[in-house]
Amino acid sequence: MAKPKIATTSLAGCFGCHMSLLDIDERILELVELVEFDKSPVDDIKNFTGRCAIGLVEGGCCNEHNVDVLREFRRHCDILISVGDCATMGGIPALRNTVPLRECLDEAFVNGPSVHNPDGKYPDDPEIPLILDKVYPAHEVVKIDYFLPGCPPTADTLWEALVALLNDKPVELPYQLVKYD
């Protein structure tokens, strides 16, 4: 039987959640025994090669590209997991949600202390995805099956959750793994 596939992505996140996944240390060897990585920054596969058992989503959606990727993940993955506070609640990027969009762009591209932009225009290369009116947590864009809290969730949290799901067990994480105070 072919190994189940797993895909991961970082949307409006800092890659910290992916780092945390790498933090499972030598268990990464066990993991590649258990699963095959599909589309993911871990193996740099850019496009889905087929249906995946699990998708791990880091970060919420701050631009239209994030939305595309997230929707693609939903279409290809049986189980979709919001990993970390950015995916779950918007996290740090969502701090901009209370600031008008124009002010955000002005600060980033016109007025910021380290900005040199003599004609004061926003970058308009079509390759640059348009920014959304605010940062959306993943579950406001697609259906999410599981949420792993933390910034980032610890390696153990990720490991326990993956192992449980891959073995068709209920995800019942001990309190220590999901408490952050």
């Binding site: 939305v67 979709l80 969009l101 920014i131 009116d133 864009v141 697609v142």
Partner: peptide, 16 residues
């Protein structure tokens, strides 16, 4: 497809 019907991409990008 598991997409949220309440999320309106067009509206979300309109301002940008």
């Amino acid at each position: 497809e598991g997409l949220k019907r309440s999320f309106d991409l067009q509206r979300a990008v309109a301002e940008a």
